[in-house]
C-alpha cells in the first residue's frame, strides 16, 4: 500500500479512502513500573478514519500503550493529545466520555447479563435520565430506553448477533463473546475504537468474520480504529499504518509495506545473532 502523505490534512490510502487529520497523538510517552520501563519515549499519531495497528513481540508494551490511551495507566512522562487538545490525566470512565471505547484481550463482558443488556450498557454515555426518572420509568426513562434500544438493535443487526439477543453471555462460545464485546464498544458510537487482540484464540473462519466486521465498522461508520494483533497476515491486510514496538521502544512506524521491509522489525521478529 503506497500512501501519499499530507502531514496536515491526512492522506489517501491505496484503496482510495481519505484519511483525515490527527485524532490522537502520543508524544514521548514513558511508562515505568518501579524500575521496569514498560514504554520508553514513544510517539505516534492516529488519524481520523484510519486503521492503525500496534504490533510487536510478547512483552513489547503494546497492551500497556493501549492502557495509557484508555486511562488505566498514567505515564510518568509524555503527553496525550486528543482532538487537538492536551488530555489531562484521567480516570478510565472519563476517557470513555471523550468517545474512546475498547475491547480487551481476555474478554471482559458482564457474564451475568444478557447480550442485549451488555450492549445496552455501551450506551451509558448517551443516556441522561436521572435516578428518579428511572425509578418511575414511564415517560422520560422509557422513551430514552427505547431510543437507545433502536441504536443497539442496529449494532446487533450489523454484527449478526440477533439470535442470541436474550441469551446470558455466560452461555456463549468464545468467538461470539468476542463479537458481543465488539458490539458493546460499538454501541457507544466511539470516535476512537481500541481493539486489544480482537482475533486472539480464533480459528481461521472466525478471524475472517472478525476482519470483515472491523473493515465494515471502519467503512460504514467511519470509526477510527487502533488495534493490537499478533496475526501478521491480518495486520498487514487490515491496517493503513503500523507501529512496531519491541522492549518498550518504537522500532518502526509506517505503512505495512514499509514496516515489512524495515530491518529492525525483521530482527525483532526473527531474532538476530548477537556478537
Amino acid at each position: 500500500m503506497n500512501a501519499q502523505m499530507h502531514p496536515q490534512d491526512g492522506y489517501t490510502t491505496a484503496d482510495g479512502r481519505n484519511i483525515g487529520p490527527v485524532l490522537m497523538e502520543m508524544r514521548n510517552i514513558t511508562l515505568r513500573f518501579g524500575g521496569v520501563k514498560a514504554i520508553t519515549d514513544i510517539s505516534f499519531d492516529i488519524r481520523e478514519g484510519e486503521i492503525r495497528a500496534i504490533i510487536g513481540p510478547n512483552g513489547a508494551g503494546k497492551s500497556s500503550m493501549l492502557n495509557v490511551i484508555s486511562g488505566f495507566y498514567v505515564p510518568q512522562d509524555g503527553e496525550v493529545w486528543y482532538k487537538g487538545q492536551k488530555r489531562p490525566p484521567m480516570k478510565p470512565f472519563q476517557v470513555a466520555r471523550l468517545g474512546i471505547a475498547r475491547t480487551f484481550q481476555n474478554i471482559a463482558l458482564f457474564e451475568g447479563m444478557t447480550v442485549l443488556d451488555n450492549v445496552m450498557t455501551g450506551r451509558l454515555n448517551h443516556m441522561k435520565s436521572g435516578l428518579i426518572a428511572q425509578a418511575i420509568w414511564k415517560g422520560r426513562a422509557e422513551a430514552e430506553e427505547v431510543a437507545n434500544r433502536e441504536v443497539v438493535e442496529k449494532v446487533i443487526d450489523f454484527l449478526e448477533i440477533q439470535a442470541i439477543r436474550k441469551t446470558p453471555v455466560a452461555r456463549l462460545p468464545y468467538g461470539l463473546k468476542k463479537r458481543v464485546e465488539l458490539a458493546r464498544a460499538l454501541a457507544a458510537e466511539p470516535s476512537l475504537l481500541l481493539l486489544d487482540e480482537p482475533m486472539a484464540g480464533m480459528n481461521v473462519e472466525e478471524k475472517e468474520d472478525m476482519s470483515r466486521f472491523i473493515l465494515d465498522v471502519n467503512d460504514e461508520f467511519g470509526t477510527t480504529i487502533c488495534l493490537i494483533e499478533h496475526d501478521m497476515g491480518v495486520v498487514m491486510d487490515l491496517s493503513d499504518r503500523v507501529v512496531v514496538m519491541d522492549y518498550g521502544k518504537k522500532i518502526g512506524d509506517g505503512t505495512p509495506d514499509e514496516v515489512r521491509s524495515n530491518q529492525a522489525v525483521i530482527d525483532a521478529y526473527l531474532g538476530v545473532a548477537h556478537d
Binding site: F93, A101, A108, L109, D117, G122, S129, L131, Q134
Partner: peptide, 29 residues
C-alpha cells in the same frame, strides 16, 4: 424493578460482574 431494568441497574450489574470493564465503558464506580 424499574431501577434494575434501566441504565442504573445495568451500571450496578456491570460493577458486580467486572468492574474494570464497567469503568472503561463509562461507569463511574
Amino acid at each position: 424493578r424499574n431501577l434494575t431494568r434501566g441504565m442504573q441497574g445495568r451500571q450496578w450489574m456491570a460493577i458486580r460482574d467486572m468492574d474494570i470493564a464497567a469503568e472503561i465503558i463509562g461507569v463511574n464506580p
